[in-house]
Design a protein around this nucleic acid. Structure first.
Lengths: 246, 246
DNA sequence: GAGCCTCTTTGATCCCGATCAAATAGGCGG
DNA sequence: CCGCCTATTTGATCGGGATCAAAGAGGCTC
């Protein structure tokens, strides 16, 4: 459960300091941000906002995982965003949330009151430029996700998701994915299904199939070991060249 | 084919002036942009860049339609972006294109040399703020698209695509979609299939089905009339509330 | 206007993933 | 340690969209 204790007064010790929206702020800008910021904690499964709700803050994910999802008339749901530590939540200039936002773990948000944050955005290039960069990255991720949703088979979808998680896990420790590395899948089977546009039964079956094929190893439900990362990549269906360098 | 003649020297007469990345520029900024810009024309079906190619420009779509698409190892392709007039092509700060970009019509781009454009971006808040806003809009569109790809039936996908096109068509003329309005689908059946993660046969069958149900009327292959817009919306599967206000 | 493209429609069949159903495995409070 | 609750796995069957196949329908060149 690796609980992290955070000193909300001290940005220098913040675990996402070098990747979040404030990554390029000068000490003086951090001080201004400090006056409009506050921390919030959420339990696993707890709703953060519902689609249509007014949202009076934007935020950075400090620790834990949150998801954005949309629902059709009859209840079918699709996850449309996966927010990991350092990711940004909310849209400056918009009052109401267009998606349901849910905490998927013990979650800590560093919230900024929306109005003053918007004002800061117009005055601080280091924030607005970082936000643009992060938004462009998210757009790239969304497009990779569209390829997964639109054209990949169930097996390829699972392999792709595991590869994405392994990559981000590795990026957090600033290195490339290594063979034999073990990581935790931070999602239930149902959340994986909502991510991939599958049912949870199909997710379970395909994970079992990849285990049988010895592409992955399982310890418990959540811990996954990838003995040969290239073998996993072969299962994603992706073209070896032309892809995102990530 | 409504050919439009554009005076590339005169931004004031530009048809996308009020929506493009330059929408909030002052005359002085337009002059600076003018020194790094040039027009390019493409034929229907002509490639603009291939994934992995170096791209020495970014651009605004002035007239016509371009698509971004990704391809898997075995040739399956998924469209991941649909660029209509005023949309922005390319990413400041990135040299190589991550997607195949193709012209889907007679297309005119207003290109900016990448390096000087990036410099302008750091100096002109009216450009960088507009670009942030446009990127956030594209991210919203990508997420709506993810819901379509992941959870909708073939019939709902077609209805959603037609609704999106009708909405954008109406937005171009600054009004809401009206009953009985006729518009042109600017895509072949194959391009629609690549957009929606379907085969072209399924696209054709579902269009025929919507025609049979009198949700739409067809004139030729491309001209579509929607007698009752609400009836079309009912076919999209979307929840009536909580949606994007567009 | 004949012939040849390409785009589109329609038909027949197949298969992957959804659906329905039930068993298994942990985790946790008492 | 037991029972309950939730998450997951596994099995049987069904159906929507893919695939394979062939027939229209424009639009173009010659």
């Amino acid at each position: 459960m690796n609980q992290v204790f955070i000193d909300s007064r001290n940005c220098a010790s913040c675990p996402i300091r070098h990747r979040a929206v404030c990554a390029r702020c000068e000490p003086e800008e951090l001080e201004r941000l400090d006056t409009v910021k506050y921390y919030r904690h959420y339990e696993p499964g707890q709703p953060i906002v519902w689609a249509g709700d007014e949202m009076d803050f934007v935020a950075s994910v400090v620790t834990g995982i949150a998801t954005l999802s949309q629902t059709l008339e009859d209840g079918r749901t699709q996850m449309v965003g996966l927010l990991l530590p350092s990711d940004f939540l909310g849209r400056p200039g918009r009052k109401t949330a267009p998606y349901d936002v849910t905490s998927n773990s013990h979650l800590t948000l560093c919230c900024f009151r929306r109005k003053p944050f918007e004002k800061l955005l117009t005055e601080s290039p280091s924030i607005s430029q970082r936000l643009l960069e992060m938004t462009l990255d998210e757009l790239d991720a969304a497009r990779e996700w569209m390829l997964i949703l639109g054209r990949k088979t169930a097996r390829e979808k699972i392999a792709s998701l595991l590869a994405i998680i392994a990559r981000r896990e590795a990026a957090l420790h600033k290195r490339a994915p290594t063979n034999g590395a073990t990581f935790e899948v931070p999602l239930t089977r149902e959340a994986m299904a909502d991510y991939l546009g599958l049912t949870l039964e199909t997710v379970s079956r395909q994970i079992s199939a990849l285990k049988r094929a010895e592409i992955i190893k399982l310890e418990g439900k959540r811990l996954i070991t990838v003995p040969d990362f290239d073998a996993l990549m072969d299962e994603t269906g992706d073209d070896a060249d032309g892809g995102l360098p990530v």
